[in-house]
Design a protein around this nucleic acid. Structure first.
Lengths: 146, 146
DNA sequence: GGATATTAGTTGTTTTTGTAACTAACAAGG
DNA sequence: CCTTGTTAGTTACAAAAACAACTAATATCC
């Protein structure tokens, strides 16, 4: 007989993580995509500004581990949409502080509502303890501190 | 004061899942990319054939939830690399059975080794119980049965 | 002060993906 | 048979991502 596999692809963590991530993204995607014509990087930038307040492209990039070219283009799109304003830092004129406009704030709050609801819905399938473990492990795997 | 946020972006599951997935992919990526010049879909197809044996593009697609155009292109690349052979199904000449060549089998085994090792390394950061919960939850989120 | 290196951010070019339209083989109903 | 519908897989074209090269401002060190 064949030297058969004890390897189970559907247990391989990078595979499983990607599948789960893709699947879970779909549900949220339709909100920011259909409703605001945003791309993945765009909602991420929007959420960073909404959640943490004004910051520079650099800061968003290092927090979210997104490459600067992606940020640059996302910020350009968000500025076009009048969701974000840029103001040069006068003490270091290379960088600029990004902030949400009222319209951007409104979009953020709307999307945050959906996010919260979506998240709650996912969690409902599991126990509170399980969810806590999942979050803790994912934060660890993602390289996010606490 | 400001109507402040109880929403924590870094706890939002779709975000967290994506970050964890991206991060965990990086480590494995260099094996299939640097060593075999493969793309993500290509190793997935290779692994499906190596792990489950001969199957059609359709079957791989529905198992892995990959769109048929991506499969089609991945199979073309893998065929170029002489890792996969295609044989028409004579009872239904629309579909073809894909199988690994000896070279494909060798690449699969090599990569599987790295996958196993990589997975073990990840798991080492957690307890056995935690890992079991993680896998169970990810399978659920990914829409994979058991 | 001035050459050199770094850093923030942008732009251009190439890969890769997504979407839609296509071909070829089969299936079913009349 | 022969129209109509469906399925497996491919191809063509548009959208998005990756990567490299660029500009402009600042920092460093002699």
């Amino acid at each position: 007989m064949d030297e058969k596999d004890d390897f189970a692809l559907q247990d391989f963590l990078p595979y499983l993580l990607n599948r789960a991530a893709e699947e879970s993204s779909l549900g949220f995607q339709k909100h920011y995509k259909n409703r605001y014509g945003m791309l993945r990087t765009e909602w991420r930038v929007l959420f960073h500004l909404g959640n943490y307040g004004q910051m520079t492209a650099k800061e968003i990039g290092s927090r979210a581990k997104i490459h600067k070219t992606k940020i640059s283009r996302a910020v350009a799109k968000l500025t076009e949409k009048r969701f974000v304003t840029r103001t040069r830092d006068e003490s270091d004129r290379r960088s600029e502080h990004l902030a949400l406009t009222p319209a951007g704030e409104a979009a953020y709050k709307d999307l945050r509502e959906h996010a919260l609801e979506f998240d709650t819905q996912i969690c409902a399938r599991f126990t509170t303890g399980e969810v806590a473990i999942l979050r803790y492990m994912l934060r660890n795997l993602a390289g996010i501190e606490p």
